[in-house]
Design a protein around this nucleic acid. Structure first.
Lengths: 320, 320
DNA sequence: GCCTCATTTGAATATCTATTCTCTATTGTA
DNA sequence: TACAATAGAGAATAGATATTCAAATGAGGC
């Protein structure tokens, strides 16, 4: 059969199939051609470029940025949230909402959720989550003790409790300070049966929700000599630390920066986190850019929820 | 779920489905969403205009013209053949080839083919047909006796024989003049057993291949007082006849123009033709434009094979 | 607050589509 | 001319997708 007529036939079949929405069998009856051949013609029509499928991203979605981030950093999934202005509070709301939606629509039954509690992003996320009707998750495990004064500490456990309530899961709290006064103090706290029980769950976690912190300036400022000694922080900084997840520090390339602090932190380690199938990092904002990049490069998270500005910067694109 | 996130999800699913070519079930595993929902999201993505399918007609094919003709004249199928120049011989070759392809690819098993023999278009068509390997058609029935001198007459029956050979069908010939000298002469010819047998097949025909003739100027000139009397032709013309199919005349609107001639023509009548499920008209060229339009308006044919120039004129479009 | 109606969801399944398999036929090669 | 390798078509069927159904949820309306 001559080429031109084959092309015509493909076009006609494509027209009947895609424009007129006929079944292949209807086309096959109509044109006296077997259904198998119709199927093959349609496939060839695609190969020939006669049929093309175009995906037009609706305003406010950024599949190209997401794709670029997945490709560049080997991430499983990325959600880029739209955000009108690049102001901290706006970004926080945007990524919180996005993370909430992501969480709601991807949480499966019987999941064991890990939550690295003290993070404005995660707080925003949990606030965005609607109560799930049917109990879905099994457990919500607090990944890190509370930080700073007791009020903030309780905040941390509340977040865990809240998420547990929303998902109908059992909360597993880490009723301890995130940073013990000393390695010895940590040992004592870890001796607590409840703390042990929670930490025992770490290895059963199926999805971890974590914030990503920047060392400079926030942690430095915020700390103001409470949990961390200036020496420790400066030491971390001197050794290249740029950010943290669960108070476990890493440098710009994502390599762990260990230190005496690790002996005092009560919470999940990076090694343990590495064994969790799905680690969702929720973070955005220019201030955290390098920390986020580090977490991505170090494969500390494999899902990222961020804002469009940060996403653009992470892919070296112009910000639009 | 907020609208923007729904749209994002549709986009993402569409991307995985169309760009990454994942199965719906793979997507459903990956995103923790049921396959049913993936299917629904894809459907909605189309409705939302996120996914669009574009059909790009290859050069030399004219789906838009074909569509316009189908719509305008209520045709079942139309093939518009490409044609470089608007010269009779070129047009003839183009539509002949197109008709041949159309025939080859749509002829089914057990079809009874009717062939209105004396037509340059049909000749070109039959010449373009490759011998079918497996016998397909059951019978090829000559729809009209031969015209003019015996050489031309035999031409007509040869065409039938040839098509029959190509399709492995049994030829049913009308070994008679297309136009008898008188009504009485017709009666005599129709008395012949073979002629009767062939005409008996008329009502079993599943597909009729017919040319479309123009009264002016061709028939008038061509005749030169052979089969038709000038009176008859002028009478037909006076009564609005503009063209014919199987020597059955019709006016510009496709209404039959009957006359004494009908009593003498040995061949299928328009009424009989109207009962054939698929009547394929093969014709093109400026000269025949009005005749073709008449045949279309009168629903005398329901499939048209023509050239792009004629197609454009039939749809009142500019010729390109 | 409680009920009704319209939606939404996933499991089961009906339907549609792609692929395999086999047969036929064709093309290039000796 | 005959032969092997190649290509193409449809029938059967494996596989994928759409739809149905039942259950559950949410949004008004009283």
């Amino acid at each position: 059969m001559s080429r031109i007529y084959e092309l015509r036939l493909m076009t006609r079949v494509a027209q009947l199939y895609y424009a007129n929405r006929l079944k292949q069998s209807e086309i096959s009856t109509r044109l006296n051609i077997s259904q198998a051949t119709i199927s093959r013609l349609l496939k060839r029509a695609e190969q020939e470029g006669i049929v093309r499928v175009t995906i037009t991203p609706p305003r406010g979605t950024f599949p190209d940025l997401e794709q670029a981030l997945r490709d560049r950093y080997g991430l499983t999934e990325v959600v880029v949230a739209d955000c009108f202005q690049e102001a901290e509070d706006q970004i926080l709301r945007a990524i919180g909402e996005a993370a909430g939606h992501y969480f709601e629509s991807t949480i499966g039954d019987d999941e064991v959720i890990g939550l690295s509690s003290w993070s404005a992003s995660l707080l925003a996320m949990v606030e965005a989550i609607h109560p799930l009707k049917r109990a879905k998750a099994k457990k919500v495990v607090q990944l890190l003790g509370g930080i700073g004064n007791p009020v903030v500490q309780s905040h941390a456990t509340q977040l865990t409790t809240r998420l547990a309530a929303l998902t109908g899961a059992e909360p597993m709290l880490l009723s301890a300070q995130g940073v013990a006064a000393s390695a010895a103090a940590k040992l004592i706290m870890v001796g607590d049966a409840y703390v042990r029980a929670t930490m025992e769950q770490f290895r059963h976690i199926t999805v971890a929700l974590v914030g990503i912190g920047a060392l400079q300036p926030s942690l430095m400022l915020w700390n103001s000599g409470n949990s961390f000694s200036s020496d420790e922080l400066h030491d971390l900084e001197a050794r290249g630390a740029i950010g943290d997840v669960c108070l476990r520090f890493f440098d710009a390339a994502g390599r762990p920066v260990t230190g005496s602090l690790d002996e005092r932190v009560i919470g999940m380690s990076l090694a343990e986190l590495g064994k969790v199938p799905r680690v969702v990092g929720v973070a955005g904002g220019a201030r955290k850019l390098d920390a986020i990049r580090g977490a991505l490069l170090g494969r500390i998270v494999n899902v990222l929820i961020t804002d469009k500005f940060t996403a653009a910067r992470l892919t070296d694109q112009d910000i639009s």
